[in-house]
Design a protein around this nucleic acid. Structure first.
Lengths: 121, 121
DNA sequence: GTAGCGGGTTAGAGTTACTCTAAGTCAATG
DNA sequence: CATTGACTTAGAGTAACTCTAACCCGCTAC
């Protein structure tokens, strides 16, 4: 699979995939005789997971750590699980924040009401 | 009110408040005779709204537009309401994405299960 | 056979939104 | 009167992309 298809499949742009590789957040990617990257289904799965992690705000540093552990094999599973569990917790907090903001917006929008005049700021 | 208190009250760091002022996203801030900014309750309210907007991912450009409209007074209310309503929509989408990611994480975590061995990446 | 197209490759510059540092001012306190 | 602590500024540094420039390679069309 070539990079355009991989990008399509995982949700990350080709730029980002190359950037992640440079930044050491991907396992070794094999190259064809023409020097082009060859994406396996397994790699696509990995990229897709990274897509979700970054899309929900995980730092590159954390993602790098996560990949390092995965490359190391079974020994890192406990820490990998912890990283994901911690991230799930921050997602819950983020969701709460979004809900809170939706409330704030609803109130603010209502204050501009159908015929109300506001005087911000 | 001085900047440290303002920061405390609105949730934005003092750095960020100064940066927002430089970037034209705040109404004119009065200065004391010592050259220090003086934060009124009205300004704090404004900063707090901006805090919520940026915390939930609104771009500076959009926030700048919003402030500009607010400075212009009543004429901009319709567009301001639209900006907030649109933002509320994107928040709903974001929330859905978070939920989806929480699912993905739950599945991945389960795959590392209490005694399962995985072989990523 | 070579001109051009559509993919890929790299290094490195540009962007966004902060975040921090350096160097300085001023008011109050020991 | 020196130090402390809070503020001021300009500008450097950072994270995470995002894009540009310059290039290579294989293919079809003339």
């Amino acid at each position: 699979m070539r990079i355009a298809e991989a990008s399509e499949a995982c949700g990350l742009s080709a730029y980002t995939i190359r950037f992640y590789e440079k930044s050491g957040m991907l396992p070794k990617i094999e190259r064809g005789p023409d020097g082009h990257r060859r994406f396996t289904p397994r790699l696509i799965e990995w990229l897709t997971l990274l897509y979700w992690l970054r899309e929900t705000g995980m730092s590159l540093k954390q993602m790098r750590r996560f990949t390092t552990l995965a490359k190391a094999g079974d020994t890192g599973i406990a820490e990998r699980r912890k990283i994901l569990a911690d991230h799930a917790d921050t997602l819950k907090a983020k969701r709460a924040k979004l809900e809170k903001c939706e409330e704030v917006l609803a109130i603010k929008i209502a204050s501009y009401g159908p015929d109300t005049k506001e005087d911000d700021p």
